[in-house]
Design a protein around this nucleic acid. Structure first.
Ligand SMILES: [Zn+2]
Ligand SMILES: [Zn+2]
Ligand SMILES: [Zn+2]
Ligand SMILES: [Zn+2]
Lengths: 138, 138
DNA sequence: CGTGATATGTTATGTTATTACGCTTGAGTG
DNA sequence: CACTCAAGCGTAATAACATAACATATCACG
């Protein structure tokens, strides 16, 4: 099986660097975190990072976490790009768990249908504590 | 029936001003939008607005929309404060529709239970077009 | 009254994101 | 090849969002 951190070969240099930074990180990174990690590789300005992130997010290779103003690499090689993705963010260790749920998505579709609302994208972010951190605190 | 824009009487001056600004707005406002609206009332610094917003959000009288970095007054007098609230944000007109859904909340609870994750709060924001804007575009 | 908790005012600063402009690269085409 | 078009890149400046630090003020309560 392909490792989920394999990287498409058609990325540009900056896109590859940014995705690499995300892949090698334990948790979410802000654009400025990424920039700091990539100064050694020649990146100098926020825009270089934001532009790469735009493309990566557009392609579903990375996700933006709205509640953190930060980004993560997509956890699933065969991921999403369509449909609802949810993120569980641990406030203890910062780790993010990405998952999809068809029931939630369907339920949302029902609500939208009833309201005449056309869904274009959904962000769902759960904040709390992961099992590891709960166990450690006990 | 009480109008949903009735305001609790135990708010401080700044909190009352900020909630008033949100109540009188058609759509979400950023903290700086609010500040601009309230300069005439003597507010001068962002922090005055952020502090009021913190309290209002804590009490469930206002909500923060993470994907917009903006705030809305709670749409429901007898609202939430516990439990999941979802927001449907129209990218045409900017209006926000607030709703709760027990099925989604339960489903999320199941996921969390299975994972050993303790949910503390959830943000769910749907972007798209409302019925009115869809009809107007057709 | 004294004391603590909460709210306030103000300045400065930190963090996140975009605008504007011009250059480079590479694919396609006559 | 020369042309052109689209996508990407580099840089500087600026806008937008948010908090730190510090000094006062206000008010419930013992
Ligand atoms: Zn993904
Ligand atoms: Zn954790
Ligand atoms: Zn509400
Ligand atoms: Zn609309």
């Amino acid at each position: 099986m392909a490792h989920s951190h394999d990287v498409p070969s058609d990325l540009t240099r900056n896109q590859g660097l940014v995705l690499g930074a995300l892949n090698h990180s334990e948790g979410p990174l802000s654009a400025y975190d990424i920039l700091d990690k990539l100064r050694a590789d020649g990146l100098r300005a926020p825009l270089q990072v934001y532009r790469a992130l735009d493309k990566l997010v557009e392609r579903g290779l990375a996700h933006r976490l709205e509640s953190l103003n930060a980004f993560v690499a997509c956890a699933d090689e065969h991921c999403h790009r369509k449909g609802l993705i949810a993120f569980a963010i641990c406030e203890g260790c910062g780790k993010v768990d990405e998952f999809a749920d068809a029931v939630i998505e369907e339920r949302l579709g029902e609500w939208a249908g009833a309201k005449g609302f056309k869904v274009e994208r959904t962000t769902m972010e759960i904040r709390g504590k992961c099992g590891v951190c709960l166990a450690a605190a006990a």
